[in-house]
Design a protein around this nucleic acid. Structure first.
Length: 883
RNA sequence: GGGGGUGUGGCGGAAUCGGCAUACGCAGCGGACUUAAAAUCCGUCGCCGCAAGGCUUGAGGGUUCGAGUCCCUCCACCCCUACCA
């Protein structure tokens, strides 16, 4: 018997599988002909080539590989691709640090990661690799940009953004550190008004929200909730307030606000504008209010969006000296500037109702503004006081905080007495009254903002636009694509696309005169928003993908990745899918039918990270125990969606498990010899010895038949086999890989019990026995095939005597016969008053009366003279006696 | 503040529909084998107790013949999100 040597076995099978195209899909003629196998698209989020493969990748890709291999054995034609998300800022930073170019650094990392993924034995179709920084890919990203532009989904407009004056680029909010400095150079980030490119994802806000319903049950609830919150739909009303001139007289102009509580309109005692609101300066310049107002504006605008939301909650504001008229009651209320009003939500203007809104309440207290109560809880003493009161109370309410809940409207003119609250009858009544006068209307607001996609960065996909002095901003014609990104930009010398004349210079496609190219590149999230579509047709030279290919494979049946992408990547991908559908290129609306978000791999309760110096390198683990053991271990230690605690001893245990199976399979088919059968484990740090041991073989008179205890063990094994096949199948379907592996271990334990009792000589002498044993060995190896592919293939072809054309990975998944999993008798627990007091063994099909009698007899002693009041018989489980 | 989640032995975890809590593994302990060690194999392993027995799924209550699981109250921790009008 050969020793289990993963270091020899694993590379050998990897080479064979690649040479035979074992992991490619079976369709042959471009996917147009019907394939008799059902298709299955298994996808893991592709890696960013930031360095070596880490344990998070191993976990992510192990999950995907088990699903892929399992589905293949179930008879599916499986698409299981891999690629690299290779544009992005880290490449530029690393290039500067290492004196290299982003391209050189990126492609070197891809090569290293590719080698690691190969060593792990993942069943990728290596002929379909997609690398987003390859021109063959990103040119189609440009094509999609143009398509979206054509559809009106691209917009170039001005808005306040985070700007790093040292890096000379806009930064995403998450790239601004908590104290308002650039994550890379630590210089102070500024708010700047800049023209940028946007994708109008808000056009799809409602559909992106509605379609989350389609994903119910197949996406984690958490992710659906996060997306729903992010989209943030609010129902309410727009209300038009009439603006007064500097003298305080009403004009014909109005300012519109959005509110979710029109029922509180009578409680509006002041009116707020965001510091960035264009009207603010107009109001205060040259007035006594100017100095104070400017201080508030400066303080608010110099801080970043992040700072403004994370800093202390103290509210700052200043009066503008102007007034508006409340359309519902004609009240003239002052306009203030407030730093908690956001310019980019709603209209940038807010009607303040301090009695009904916590923030307005705080602001009113700070600046001594009135707090008239308008919606009061019925059981609040204030309700009784105000109910019949004719005169309006503008003074402070006796509350210490605003009341934002449901209640009854008071001091609200004709609406007094109606129910108030969010989406209440009162709210609807107020909307109707406003609408009748043309001063308001029901509306819906979303928190979702348009997607700012332009970056002043070199290492990204160039935006295909041209600036012409006479024609303005012009799209690059489709036939002129790709706009090729120069690979040799010297980021160390601070070179950029803007400094490259050969890139910049272009003739205007409309008028033919000299023009300049756009030098901004696209956010890398645009690259990852459609890569899964390209996998279905990765070498297409005439289009991003052919409709028949993409529609045949998509949507992805199972998507697997980290929870950190719960919002951005997954939302952007959903948007792209809907956009491309509306472009007529796709016939589906959601890209990922099922989503699994895997947990993190931790060490001593902490996330592994280079900076903490607690990284466990997969390559080291492969070197010690092999890829198969590593894969099983990472799946065994926790359910896939939970964080898992790394423990090297656990990995050694899995290695021992594999060695044990290795021996058992040899033993079952009579390929083991006493000399080597129980040889020591040679993995890890220890050297193996070669001591054989004598087993407690049951002695038989002739040595040619197995004894009664062994026969019983064989019967148990047979039942275990069917039970475990059923259990593993169920568990893999549910992604409970940890319990699937535990079940295989249980089968191994049954095999061990059997082998210990039945001598190899006795087994060899009985052809029927030998055939049954061989079958058990095959089942064991097949169950392990998705988990430990090399190990299983070696046993399949090397020990079970199968041929190379008969790979274990093309075998049919084993079938369980539930009837054969059942023992002839079952043991039932007998409870007396809820406590287990005894056990009985009864025939599987024993009638209830028999079971009942046996149970009562078994606990007669415990019951004493007491008469049973009630007896509950739960077939196959227990008998519960009440006395 | 809002949303989501988690709490079970020394540790990772199991219990899928309300039915014998602690499967499977790790660590530990005892034994066999060995000059010895490693490895392997066998046994043991929730807590208290010499035992009989009692107790045990974050705490407390409830429903039920029966609750880790369902309901109520509370505690702790984690994640996400946040001046969204």
């Amino acid at each position: 018997m050969q020793k289990y040597d993963p270091h020899e076995i694993e590379p050998r099978w990897q080479t064979v599988w690649e040479a035979t195209g074992a992991n490619s899909v079976t369709e042959t003629d471009g996917g147009t002909a019907a394939v008799d196998k059902p298709r299955y698209y298994a996808l893991e989020m592709f890696p960013y080539p930031s360095g070596d493969v880490h344990m998070g990748h191993v976990r992510n890709y192990s999950i995907g590989d088990v699903i892929s291999r399992y589905k293949r054995m179930q008879g599916f034609d499986v698409l299981h691709p891999i690629g690299w998300d290779s544009f992005g800022l880290p490449a530029e930073n690393a290039a500067i640090k290492q004196g290299s170019t982003p391209a050189a650094w990126t492609y070197a990392n891809i090569d290293r990661q590719r080698a690691s993924l190969r060593r792990l034995g993942f069943s990728y179709d290596w002929s379909r690799v997609v690398v987003t920084s390859d021109v063959d890919y990103y040119r189609w990203g440009q094509w999609i940009f143009l398509k979206f532009w054509e559809m009106g989904l691209v917009e170039r407009r001005s808005s306040p953004v985070n700007w790093c004056p040292s890096c000379l680029t806009v930064l995403a909010n998450e790239q601004v550190l908590g104290d308002g400095v650039c994550w890379r150079c630590k210089s102070r980030v500024e708010r700047k008004e800049l023209e940028q490119w946007y994708f109008k994802i808000t056009d799809y806000a409602q559909e992106l929200l509605d379609d989350l319903e389609l994903l119910k049950g197949s996406w984690p609830e958490r992710v659906r909730q996060m997306q729903a919150n992010w989209i943030g739909r609010s129902t309410g009303a727009e209300v038009d307030f009439t603006l007064c001139d500097a003298a305080g007289e009403p004009t014909r102009e109005t300012i519109t606000v959005f509110t979710t509580r029109p029922d509180t309109l009578f409680g509006c005692s002041f009116f707020l504008l965001a510091p960035e609101h264009p009207l603010v300066r107009e109001f205060v310049v040259g007035t006594p209010f100017e100095a104070r107002a400017l201080r508030v504006i400066d303080a608010a605008t110099s801080s970043t969006a992040v700072e403004r939301s994370k800093g202390e909650r103290e509210k700052h504001g200043a009066p503008t000296g102007r007034f508006v008229v409340n359309p519902i009651n004609g009240d003239k209320v002052p306009i203030w500037i407030a730093d908690y009003v956001l310019m980019d939500y709603g209209t940038g203007a807010v009607m303040a109702v301090p009695s009904g809104d916590e923030r307005d309440f705080e602001f009113a207290r700070t600046y001594g503004l009135p707090i008239p109560p308008v919606v009061v809880a019925e059981d609040d003493p204030l309700y009784a006081t105000l109910q019949g009161q004719a005169e309006r109370v503008q003074e402070e309410v006796p509350w210490t905080e605003a009341y934002a809940g449901e209640g009854i409207m008071v001091q609200s003119g004709p609406f007094t007495g109606q129910k108030g609250g969010k989406d209440s009858e009162g709210a609807q009544a107020v909307i109707d009254a406003l609408a009748a006068r043309g001063q308001g209307r029901a509306t819906v607001n979303f928190r979702l903002r348009d997607w700012l996609i332009s970056r002043q960065r070199y290492w990204g996909n160039p935006i295909p636009a041209i600036y012409c002095d006479s024609c303005g901003i012009v799209p690059v014609p489709y036939e002129d694509l790709p706009v090729v990104l120069p690979m040799d930009i010297d980021v160390i010398k601070n070179e950029s696309l803007a400094s490259r004349e050969d890139f910049l210079a272009v003739d205007c496609p409309v008028c033919g005169r000299p023009a300049r190219r756009e030098t901004d590149t696209m956010d890398t999230f645009t690259c990852s928003s459609w890569y899964y579509l390209r996998y279905t047709d990765p070498h297409n030279n005439g289009a991003p993908f052919a409709p028949e290919q993409v529609n045949a494979w998509m949507p992805v049946d199972q998507y697997i990745g980290g929870i950190e992408h719960a919002i951005l990547h997954l939302l952007y991908s959903r948007f792209f899918t809907k956009g491309l559908r509306d472009a007529g290129l796709l016939n589906f609306s959601e890209p990922f039918t099922r989503l699994l978000t895997q947990g993190m791999v931790k060490l001593n309760g902490e996330t592994m990270s280079k900076s903490k110096g607690n990284v466990v390198a997969p390559e080291d683990m492969i070197a010690s125990y092999g890829a198969d053991a590593l894969r099983i271990f990472i799946l065994f230690m926790a359910p896939p969606d939970k964080d898992l605690e790394w423990e090297e001893k656990g990995l050694a245990g899995i290695y021992r498990f594999l060695v044990r199976i290795w021996r058992m399979v040899h033993d079952l088919v009579g390929a083991a010899d006493e000399e080597t059968l129980y040889e020591g484990v040679s993995g890890g740090a220890s050297e193996g010895g070669s001591q054989s041991i004598s087993n407690a073989f049951e002695s038989t008179s002739s040595g040619e038949t197995i004894g009664p205890a062994a026969r019983e063990a064989a019967a148990v094994l047979q039942r275990e086999r069917h039970r475990v096949v059923g259990k593993v199948t169920e568990d893999v379907e549910r992604f409970n890989f940890n319990t699937a592996i535990a079940a295989i271990m249980e089968l191994a334990n049954a095999v061990g019990d059997y082998l210990r009792l039945a001598s190899s000589a006795a087994r060899a002498a009985d052809p029927e026995r030998l055939a049954a044993d061989h079958e058990v060995a095959e089942v064991l190896v097949k169950l392990l095939a998705p988990l430990a592919p090399h190990f299983s293939e070696e046993l399949w072809q090397g020990v079970l005597g199968k041929t190379a054309t008969d790979s274990v990975h093309t075998q049919a998944w084993p079938i369980s016969d539930p009837a054969l999993a059942l023992a002839p008798t079952v043991e039932l627990a007998v409870q007396v008053n809820g406590k287990v007091r005894g056990h009985i063994e009864v025939a599987l099909d024993a009638p209830e009366e028999t079971v009942r009698a046996a149970a009562l007899a078994a606990v007669a002693a415990q019951m004493g003279s007491a008469e049973p009041r009630k007896v509950v018989v739960v077939p196959g489980k227990l008998v519960s006696v009440v006395v």
